[in-house]
Simulated assay, not measured.
Amino acid sequence: MSTAPERPLRADAARNKRLIMDAARELYAEEGIDVTLDDVARRAGVGVGTVYRRFANKEQLIDGVFEQNFADIAAATEASLANPDPWNGLVSFAEFACSRMAVNRGLKDVINGTDEGCEQLACQRSIFEPAIEQMFSRAQAAGTLRLDAVVTDLFGLIFMVGALAEFTRSVSETAWRRYLSLGLDGLRAAGMGRDSLPLPALSIEDLHDAKQFLKDRRR
Rank of each mutant, 00 (worst) to 15 (best):
E173I: 14
R178C: 05
V151E: 10
I111Y: 02
C123A: 14
G186H: 04
R188C: 07
S126Q: 14
T114E: 03
R194L: 14
R125C: 04
D153I: 01
D109A: 10
M160F: 12
I127R: 14
S170K: 03
A189V: 05
L121C: 11
Y179S: 03
T168P: 00
G191A: 14
A142L: 01
A122P: 05
D148L: 06
L164E: 06
S172H: 10
A175S: 07
G193S: 10
G162S: 12
L187F: 15
L180H: 10
I127A: 09
Q134K: 15
M192C: 12
A139N: 01
F155Q: 14
A163D: 14
I158T: 08
E116Y: 11
G191P: 05
E133K: 12
F159T: 13
V103C: 04
N112V: 00
T144E: 11
E116K: 14
T144L: 01
P130G: 10
R138T: 12
L187K: 08
F136R: 01
R100S: 10
G156S: 15
G117D: 07
M192V: 11
I132R: 02
W176D: 04
R169K: 13
G186E: 08
R100K: 15
F136N: 02
M192N: 09
M192T: 10
M135T: 04
S137H: 13
S170C: 11
R125E: 00
G162R: 02
R194C: 10
L107H: 11
A139Q: 06
G183I: 07
V150F: 00
R178V: 12
E166W: 12
S170H: 13
V110L: 02
R194N: 08
G162E: 06
R138M: 10
A122N: 03
F155H: 14
L154C: 03
M101Q: 15
A163K: 13
A102P: 04
A190H: 09
R177P: 01
A189C: 06
A141D: 05
R125N: 07
A149K: 07
S170A: 15
I127G: 01
M160V: 06
F128D: 01
R100N: 04
V171M: 04
S170E: 13
G113C: 08
K108E: 00
N112F: 08
L187R: 09
D115C: 13
Q134Y: 00
D148P: 06
E173M: 06
I158S: 02
M192L: 09
R105K: 15
G113T: 13
A141P: 00
A122Q: 13
L154Q: 04
V110D: 01
L154Y: 09
I111L: 15
E173F: 00
D195Y: 00
E133N: 08
R194V: 14
G113F: 05
F159E: 12
T152D: 13
I127D: 01
M135K: 00
M160C: 10
M101R: 00
A122I: 06
R138G: 05
R178I: 10
S196I: 11
